[in-house]
Amino acid sequence: MAGDLLTARAVRKEFGGLVACSDVDFTVPQGGIVSLIGPNGAGKTTFFNMLTGVYTPTSGEVTFDGHEVVGLPPHAVTQLGVGRTFQNIRLFPTMTGLENVLVGMHARLKGGIFRSILRTPGLRREEREAADRARELLRYCGLPREAEHTYAMNLSYGDQRRLEVARALGTEPKLLLLDEPTAGMNPQESAEFTSFVGRMRDERGLSILMIEHDMKVVMGISERVTVLDHGEKIAEGTPGEIQKDERVIEAYLGSAATADNGDGGLLE
């Protein structure tokens, strides 16, 4: 399939005897926005971790941009162009906003050990340009100016979420993985974030894959939605198709009503 940036074929992960992810096929088209939904414990984050090299799948293969991903360590996957955020924010708490983004740029910078000690003109230029770009990213993601010099742990919750995105953008990704990016945001912030995701895709030519619980966000922006339950893919299609799918409604039954009833969404 020519237009696909990421392809996962029959990906499977077992922990001991437990099957966390069972032979899932999955694609993200170039420039697309795809959502991954499913009840808690459905294996979404496990799947994410396999795409980013944190876990090695028990079997199956993952191709990104023409490269085999399975078996690569996480940093190598990031170097290929997969940036990610974390469900439970994992910033570097005692680094400033700027430093966090600069760590994100690590793979894109070259400053080696000897040039760092000598601080050559070339290195100084590189560092200066990187800092400029990092500042730009902070502003792009809507962080206040003072976030640049504030320790990540002292930023507000919303700003921490935004900084995670800025840091992931610092890795210059082709594909951005967002793990529950609007968790803990109020409806207005979620709406803003939704439009921001669309803008990122359009302005930066990214493809986006997100795990999301807020159905308003999912249905509002995704071009395609994949539903996981108990480690299996139970449905895939446009948001409209998913909302009507019998198995999806069944999977969520007991925890909430249907997708139509607004902000709580399927899960809440």
Binding site: G53, R90, F92, M95, G104, A107, R108, T171
Partner: peptide, 20 residues
């Protein structure tokens, strides 16, 4: 750049690796 990477690893290995 290396110094930043060290701090990042010290504070959160998984996040550091995910950032390349």
């Amino acid at each position: 750049r290396l110094g930043r990477a060290w701090v990042a690893i010290r504070e959160d290995e998984i996040a550091a690796a995910a950032m390349g």
